[in-house]
Design a protein around this nucleic acid. Structure first.
Lengths: 113, 113
DNA sequence: TTCCTTAATGCTGGCATCGTCATAAGATTG
DNA sequence: CAATCTTATGACGATGCCAGCATTAAGGAA
């Protein structure tokens, strides 16, 4: 039933994929996204929630914003950040589902042996 | 309709997610996975297909194997590697779909302006 | 204007990872 | 056994990214 192949993505596409995944390869960024998923927050609230330094948070948010995972708007002197789409949640759910399957399989192996 | 929140994943889970995404943050590894998706191959074939050095390929395959994305079996003196599940394809498809949506949105912005 | 608050950015040290060379480990053949 | 072929690994230079300090930029209040 396997169609024997999807085709090989172009090197440029692979490069874009890897850059995107690299964004998610940092716990700090994932954490920020998770917090923002609970609702819009300003930087001060993110500092309070995570304990990270102001400049660190600002940099990470900058990267996430350039990738379109996060948006922001001014509120006076504050910047209110907001999670922009569901993609990261979807990706994490897929990964988690697979982790679970893998552990269950290992469990069965142990019970047989 | 948004349930106003899924809950916040634990730091350990975030760490595992990020480690997994880090695996996919390297074009070389994505490329190896894509080649292996076409069917089982030995290391020599992967060298031929990618132009990477033998030791480089061996290292990357080692990482992918520890994560369960790739499996291998001996055939005499050769090692035949094989892609192990569809997760990576699924993740890439989701990312690609979103990239497309984003570009289409930008296109519309341009036409309005 | 000046002062204060908040967020973004230049610069830097430290650490992790990539990629290569050389070598070791494992398997097969004679 | 030795010789050879294939893959894995130790060591190392180069590169890139993180995380913090200090500074700058931007807005609002007096």
């Amino acid at each position: 039933m396997t169609p024997m192949s999807g085709d090989m993505p172009s090197p440029q596409l692979l490069e874009e994929f890897s850059q995107f995944f690299r964004l998610l390869s940092e716990p700090a960024r994932l954490q920020l996204i998770c917090h923002l998923k609970q609702g819009p927050m300003d930087v001060a609230a993110l500092i309070e929630a995570t304990g990270f330094s102001q400049s660190h948070i600002s940099r990470q948010l900058g990267q996430l914003q350039r990738a379109g995972l996060v948006s922001c708007e001014r509120d006076g002197v504050r910047m209110i950040y907001q999670a922009q789409d569901e993609l990261v949640s979807d990706l994490c759910n897929l990964v988690q589902k697979r982790m679970k399957q893998r552990l269950e399989a290992q469990l069965e192996q142990l019970q047989i042996a």
